[in-house]
């Protein structure tokens, strides 16, 4: 019987531009939330971005550890592109992405309140501080956001690992804002309430992307797997700290060719070593 072994390699000799509805802002990523710790937990009162202090040893769970979270605005001219973000009609009316004049997305969960007698504005815990602010979380795989801190509906995300891989991150002239240019052709603007809020996100994202970063970022990201399983920058080691490293030497296997049928055969043995059946495939 003829045995055919197949090895298939894919050669995508192209720089194909993949446009389309890759990143549907209206999608709900429930599975993402199964692994996100601290949803509405102890740190729910903090309005500012916070850095998670721990990194788990498990490979998969390390990806879902929230590295930084906080309130940001998001602006994208393509929010009004009905091809990419179609308008849905349902019994309660139309559902579409609301934006302001500069294409900054408006958070429908925001409710303006009047100041009380002492002049302070009281809002529900975890509600947005402004009508354009969404709650962003960053882990080693996604930058994703939802309407409020406790909401489980993810409105959009940047996928570090897979389809929507950001190409670059840099600050704009406004120090509170930064751009993320994605390989889908989109350039999306994100702004924090302060420069520090935005900077915390930018520094960690630059680290995850393994691009140049400033000194401010050193030691911000817990050591562990980053994009494509590669480790992030080395952890900060204190003077005198004992560091144990386990180095596994790689094994390199090089296949050695077996003897070929009647290779180097000659008449020295008067034909006694000729393998008649070999060429017929019987051996």
């Amino acid at each position: 019987m003829k045995l055919i072994a197949l090895i298939t390699l894919i050669s995508f000799f192209c720089f194909s531009i993949q446009l389309g509805k890759i990143n549907n802002e209206n999608s709900v990523l429930f599975n993402l939330w199964n692994n996100v710790p601290g949803m509405g937990g102890d740190d729910a009162e903090s309005p500012n971005p916070t850095v998670s202090p721990t990194a788990k040893s498990s490979f998969d769970s390390s990806y879902s550890d929230t590295l930084v979270e906080g309130w940001l605005t998001v602006s994208n001219a393509r929010f009004k592109d009905s091809d990419k973000y179609p308008i849905f009609t349902h019994p309660d009316g139309k559902a579409e992405i609301l934006t302001s004049g500069d294409y900054t997305r408006i958070n429908s969960a925001y409710k303006d309140r009047s100041p009380d007698e002492v002049g302070e504005i009281h809002r529900d815990e975890g509600s947005p501080p402004g009508r354009s602010f969404f709650y962003f979380r960053l882990n080693r795989q996604f930058l994703y956001f939802s309407e409020t801190k406790t909401c489980v509906n993810v409105l959009g995300r940047v996928d570090w690992k897979n389809k929507v891989k950001p190409l670059s991150i840099h600050f704009m002239e406004n120090p509170k804002c930064f751009h993320i240019s994605e390989n889908t052709g989109d350039t999306i603007r994100y702004c924090g309430k302060t420069h520090e809020d935005a900077k915390k996100f930018v520094c960690i994202m630059q680290t995850l992307l393994r691009v140049a970063q400033d000194d401010y970022c050193q030691g911000r990201v817990p050591d562990g797997p980053a994009i494509e399983g590669k480790p992030t920058h080395p952890p900060v080691i204190k003077p005198g700290q004992l560091v144990e490293k386990i180095i596994t030497q790689p094994y390199i296997l090089i296949p050695l060719a077996r003897e070929q049928c009647n290779e180097h055969w000659d008449y020295a043995n008067n034909g006694g070593d000729w393998k008649c059946l070999c060429k017929e495939g019987s051996l």
Partner: peptide, 20 residues
Amino acid sequence: GKTVGDTAKHLILSFVFKKV
């Protein structure tokens, strides 16, 4: 296949192409 025991076997290395 050329080696002893492989002479009746074939191995196919296959590449697929995209048009760009």
